[in-house]
Design a protein around this nucleic acid. Structure first.
Lengths: 142, 142
DNA sequence: AAATACCTTCCAGTTGGCTAGAAGGTTTAC
DNA sequence: GTAAACCTTCTAGCCAACTGGAAGGTATTT
């Protein structure tokens, strides 16, 4: 299978496939006599794995770690599970952060809508987003 | 106030302050006779606004739009609220996506834990994350 | 007068995940 | 035989939000 065919079957571009090879998440394939890359069908599954893992929010680096361990024939379940669990924690943190952001945004919007329109004409005091009246129990940054 | 003092008071670095000036979210300040930047105290509030808005997930571009309108003395409430509402939608979408990711990760982890450890030794069939048995109602990508 | 701690500008690099394009070789179809 | 559609490598650019460093000027302290 040439790179174009693999691209077609997986929905990646040839560019992306070569990029994945560069960074090591796809192994260097064999070559035909003319230098073209020659893929075995099994690489389709590997790409599928990568796509699933990406869709779950794993970075290519994390995917590479899993795949490298797997390629070494290691029993990777332990490593993989730990990596997934740590990633799950990240995701949960992100969800919490986003909920806080959401609350903040809703407050801002309600605030703005409750305003006397006349206040909007005072350029020095846009009340919509103000430093002073939206202090919450911690903004999360710094 | 010189840039270092502003940096101290706001928790930004001097680098970041100059960067904000470059991209236009902070106005060019006056200069002392020696060429040093000279800030009025009001810029502290403006930086505070920027930090709050960043913490709410607004990009510097979005912040710039709000501030530009405000600087022009426009009645910006309408614009600002629309921007905030559109951003709120983004945040809600992100939360939904992350919940789907979370579910997927939990499935993977449970799957892995339920496995016969012997399977882990077969390097061609790491079951932990597999393309085949985790298909959900749409991966979201592409 | 020298050390240090500031300040100035400008240019380049970082991270992550690609994407674009140049400049060439190969294969297939008409 | 030539055009197109593929393939190769390499370099460079994109996004955001900075950060680092060079090369110099200034201010303060000893």
């Amino acid at each position: 299978m040439k790179i174009g065919e693999l691209a077609n079957k997986t929905g990646l571009t040839t560019k992306t496939i070569r990029y994945y090879e560069d960074i090591g998440v796809l192994p260097e394939p064999g070559r035909q006599a003319n230098g073209y890359r020659s893929y075995s069908p099994s690489v389709i599954d590997r790409v599928g794995f990568i796509k699933d893992a990406r869709a779950s929010g794993l970075s290519l680096i994390e995917i590479q770690i899993i795949l490298e361990l797997r390629d070494e024939g290691e029993s990777t379940c332990g490593h993989t599970v730990r990596l997934l669990e740590s990633h799950l924690e990240d995701v949960e943190t992100q969800i919490i952060d986003l909920h806080r952001t959401k609350t903040q945004l809703e407050k801002m919007i309600n605030n703005a809508k409750a305003l006397d329109p006349a206040d909007c004409l005072n350029p020095n005091r846009c009340q919509t987003i103000s430093v002073t009246h939206l202090q919450m129990e911690g903004t999360g940054t710094e």
